[in-house]
Design a protein around this nucleic acid. Structure first.
Lengths: 312, 312
DNA sequence: TTGTAGGCGTTATCAA
DNA sequence: TTGATAACGCCTACAA
């Protein structure tokens, strides 16, 4: 017990004793067994993070910020890549719960009933990220994808664009943004956009191909709205390759404000999200709750910023 | 014990008993406690993966493939972002070892003496990835960065380029590639390249800025060799923005064969690495060894491919 | 400030 | 095929 205290709460142990313990630790290369510690204390100091993909520039920054923040506070991250299907998410979460994480971060707010039940049954703090709802499982850090869609639609209408083309991936959150755009256009009596759906993960290649197919269609759009900056970049490359000027001949709008967006030629008009902030706040809320503290506002809307640059 | 067997080795339990156990599991929502299991069995089914960064397109694919492969086999991944310094790596590995992972994947082959000692002392299988050495800690999956450098230098010399400009990040493995390029140029009596060092992480912005500074220098290069495709893309954007043609006025070479490289305009000449393969093989070797199997070749050179496209 | 006893939820081992 | 017992290494609770 004295060794345990010397390592975990040295302030309650006589300094000389601490020194003796630490000397022994160094001499033997002793490393505490966190499995045993977690079993005994019922605190594993593990946080599970479930994302649909990691080779997705949006999530990676959030993951990195969670990981950094956790490490600073003596926690570790169990990272699980769940894919975009409900079934796999429920299964993965069940196996991850066997590790007895002290808390869990889930991407999105749409979960299968089994998953909801399983997670709630675990009685640990949960933070859902990257979406917004008044009824989260527990806590939430995100933003409204529908509002992003409205904002994009409004901005482009104000700019005078009327023939919309959409290049979009098929995941649920992207769909909400698309609905936002379409609803706004409908409200203003603008023609329903032409639409090209692309599979995940998005890539420059898919953006080019989708752009090509829209440019070769009967009704060529005057603006291409893309579900990510990566697709937007592809669309721009394709349009320019065909001798079109962006935005004069065709405008392109992205989403995400990825690193390259500001420095591309033309710079990409897009929507910025505080990706690190999402991770930081999610971690803060989780650890605050674990520390027994009171989380004053369990629902955090980090909002978004429409960033006007040159492509639209 | 019967429950434990019904769950882990149902084949040694009477089918009817298994059924009864499973019914109870379902009814109660029982989820085994892997902390207790790991403590008792001395197998945590956890693999630690230490990388310098995750918001780095090179590592992300490897991480994803490790994660996928581990999940398929009932293991989980503890992902640790160590940064690029020795001190932080040693510290992080020590704390991660307290989780008693069954194996560990380390990025790179240059570790501090403390780290080597700590890891070896843990007596678990180790796989180093993304570099090559005849003397790994244990097992290794990677390729020779020096050879990549030679190949790049040789290719560009054959193409007739003589005035080299380098845009390079400061990490150790990138430095090996740079040394390869420089050595080869020196052997052929070509002028020492002009060099712009950029901080990590690489970005399109940094590529543009570095390119700008090289183009404004006294000795304008006829080829820009970049330590990553991201920097190469930036260099191309900047050069074209200044009205230069790529590769006619200035050629640009990248590294990594990231998704966008093939579909950029001009398509980026680069060096491809099987990033998924590295993760897959590392995981296979680790689990093979954990299963008590014999790893016939503990050093795997995955090689690389110089991909000629249009930018150089 | 340090020490003792007991238990956390599994699995290894041996017995039935 | 199932069960009983004793760890695994730590922490909680309480005692000294």
């Amino acid at each position: 017990m004295t060794v345990s205290r010397a390592i975990n709460t040295p302030q309650v142990v006589r300094p000389k004793t601490v020194e003796k313990v630490m000397a022994a630790v160094r001499a033997t290369g002793y490393i505490p067994n966190a499995l045993a510690g977690g079993l005994a204390s019922k605190r594993s100091k593990l946080i599970a993070v479930v994302v649909p993909q990691i080779n997705n520039s949006m999530f990676v920054d959030t993951i990195q910020s969670i990981s950094d923040e956790l490490a600073r506070r003596g926690y570790h991250m169990l990272l699980c890549v769940a894919g975009y299907t409900h079934e796999s998410e429920a299964e993965i979460v069940t196996t991850i719960l066997s590790r007895r994480p002290d808390g869990i971060v889930l991407t999105g707010i749409h979960h299968s009933p089994e998953l909801r039940k399983t997670v709630l049954n675990a009685s640990i703090p949960v933070v859902e990220i990257w979406d917004l709802t008044p009824t989260p499982l527990d806590m939430l850090v995100g933003f409204s994808h529908a509002k992003v869609g409205y904002a994009i639609g409004q901005y482009l209408l104000n700019k005078g664009y009327r023939r919309f083309g959409l290049i979009w991936t098929e995941d649920r959150r992207a769909a909400q943004r698309k609905n936002g755009v379409c609803e706004l256009l409908a409200q203003h009596g603008v023609d329903t956009p032409t639409e090209v759906l692309v599979p995940l993960p998005a890539s420059l290649k898919l953006g080019r191909e989708a752009c090509a197919s829209l440019l070769e269609s009967d009704a060529v759009p005057d603006v291409l709205v893309c579900s990510s900056d990566t697709l937007a970049q592809g669309a721009i490359v394709e349009a320019m390759h065909r001798g079109m000027r962006v935005p004069e001949d065709i405008a392109v709008m992205g989403f995400g404000d990825l690193d390259f967006a500001a420095f591309h030629e033309p710079a990409i008009t897009t929507v910025g999200i505080d990706r690190w902030g999402v991770g930081k706040r999610a971690t803060d809320m989780l650890l605050e709750k674990l520390a027994g503290g009171f989380v004053s506002d369990p629902i955090v809307d980090v909002g978004f910023v429409l960033i006007e640059r040159h492509s639209a």
